[in-house]
Each structure stands twice: as structure tokens, then as C-alpha cells.
């Protein structure tokens, strides 16, 4: 299976502080990969290196076939990115947002029109096409943001806590969209604080203090740590055996 992300001992230090310490993992084509860890474990730093926004200190990694040290601009063109903070323009209409982002990703006018219309049809948004995004209900916005982030058919899309605060129905519809893209061969790299969502991923890595301490399928991890669910795996890894609230 083709590897879309390959990281070998990737490291980032800020002065004396090692934010990411020799992480080694890979993500395959069409895989939904969950990138988990406590607040401050180094997830964001790692993600910024993989998306070409931050230069690593040492190690090696490629994303969509491009080197994270020397080909950062090419990486940016070949990935999609959606942050937890809604990043489309609220003062533009849906179609204007699509045109703007399509343009940035280098799509032709015909492609933008074609894909934009397909997106609107797929999400059943014909009736709000001409509305400003600020008038669109919150639940829809995340789905729109995801669709726009994948408009240029990137090889891999990075989702940073895409479902925070979203209602449970929308959250599930969102995951179905992720499944669909993965089924079509897109690689999905996702962070989340919902541990039930961790189980929706094909494979997972769990970061603790800048290092990867857990790596495998949810089933393998639960077995390895003798846990009922991912919540227990997380707590075990983040705080160790001695962790006990009672």
C-alpha cells in the first residue's frame, strides 16, 4: 500500500525544549489516521511540520511524496487543511467562498464551477447558495469547511479537531463524509478529543510528552493496554498505571 505520510525520527526543538521527539510513523493511502494526545503533548507542532508550516529540527519525513525540509510549498499545494476554528469567510456567500478557495488551490474556472455545483448538490445546499455564510446554521458550516478543504482533491487532508462542540447528529454526518472520502482513496489525518471518534479511525497514534507511545488499530491498542475503550487507553498512556482518581 502506498504511503502518503512517512515520518522517521522527526524532531522539533524550541531552544532547550523538545516539543516533538523522534516520532516515527506512516499513514497509507485511503487511511483514516487518528493523531491523539493530551493538550501540550506536541500534536500541533507535529501537524505544523507535516503541513509545511514549520521547519523540523532533525529527522526525515515526506507528505504526499514531498520532503518536509525542502519542499514545503509543494506540500501545501497537495494537502487540504481544516482547523477547529471556522476559517471560511462569513461575509462571503457559499459560492464566493468556493471560488476564492478554488482559486487559491489553482483550480480553473470550469473546475471551480463544476466542483462547486457538485459540492452544493451533495450537501443539498441549493437554497442557501446565495446566502452569506454567517447566516448558515453552525452544524452546516463544519461540513462546508470540510468540503471546501477537499475541493482540489488533495492526496491527504488534515483535520484539526473538526467536530468540537458540534451536535451528535452533525458529528456523525461529518464522519460519514470522512468515510466517503477515504473510500475514494483520500488519506485523512485527524485530531480529536472525542475518544469514541478515535474508534472510527483505521489506525491511531497517541502522543505523550512529544513522543509516540501508542501506535496501531483501536483494537490492537485496546488489547495491548487491556482496556475496554479508547478513553482507558488514553488515560493509561497519558498518566500511567499509577493514575487513579479514587
Amino acid at each position: 500500500m502506498e504511503k502518503i505520510i512517512e515520518s522517521t525520527e522527526l524532531t522539533k526543538t524550541f531552544g532547550d525544549f523538545t516539543a516533538v521527539n523522534k516520532i516515527t510513523f506512516d499513514v497509507k493511502k485511503g487511511e483514516i489516521f487518528g493523531f491523539l494526545g493530551a493538550n501540550g503533548a506536541g500534536k500541533s507542532t507535529a501537524m505544523r511540520m507535516l503541513t509545511g508550516l514549520l521547519s523540523p529540527t532533525s529527522g526525515a519525513a515526506t507528505v504526499a511524496g514531498y520532503d518536509v525540509f525542502t519542499e514545503q510549498e509543494k506540500i501545501k499545494k497537495n494537502i487540504g487543511y481544516m482547523s477547529q476554528k471556522f476559517s471560511l469567510y462569513n461575509d462571503l456567500t457559499l459560492m464566493e467562498n468556493i471560488t476564492f478557495y478554488g482559486g487559491i488551490y489553482g483550480l480553473s474556472n470550469t473546475q471551480i464551477k463544476e466542483r462547486g455545483e457538485k459540492l452544493i448538490e451533495r450537501l443539498d445546499l441549493g437554497n442557501i447558495k446565495k446566502k452569506l455564510l454567517k447566516e448558515v446554521p453552525l452544524g452546516w458550516k463544519q461540513k462546508i469547511a470540510f468540503s471546501v478543504a477537499t475541493l482540489h482533491n488533495p492526496k491527504v487532508v488534515f483535520l484539526d479537531e473538526p467536530t468540537g462542540g458540534v451536535d451528535p447528529i452533525t458529528r456523525r454526518q461529518f464522519w460519514e463524509m470522512i468515510y466517503e472520502k477515504a473510500d475514494q482513496g483520500m488519506t485523512v489525518f485527524v485530531t480529536t478529543h472525542y475518544m469514541d471518534e478515535a474508534e472510527y479511525c483505521h489506525r491511531i497514534s497517541m502522543m505523550v510528552h512529544g513522543e509516540i507511545h501508542g501506535y496501531g488499530t483501536p483494537k490492537e491498542l485496546k488489547k495491548e493496554f487491556n482496556a475496554q475503550n479508547m478513553d482507558e487507553v488514553f488515560i493509561h498512556l497519558a498518566r500511567g498505571d499509577q493514575y487513579n482518581l479514587k
Binding site: A38, N39, E161, H193, M195, D231, F234, A238, R239, L245
Partner: peptide, 14 residues
């Protein structure tokens, strides 16, 4: 507990 990881959430509820 919004945006807080599962361990910190448990601690806060405690």
C-alpha cells in the same frame, strides 16, 4: 471542559 483532553477533563470533574 471544552477543548480539554480526556485526562484533564476527568481531573476537572473530580
Amino acid at each position: 471542559t471544552t477543548g480539554v483532553d480526556p485526562v484533564s477533563r476527568k481531573e476537572f470533574w473530580h
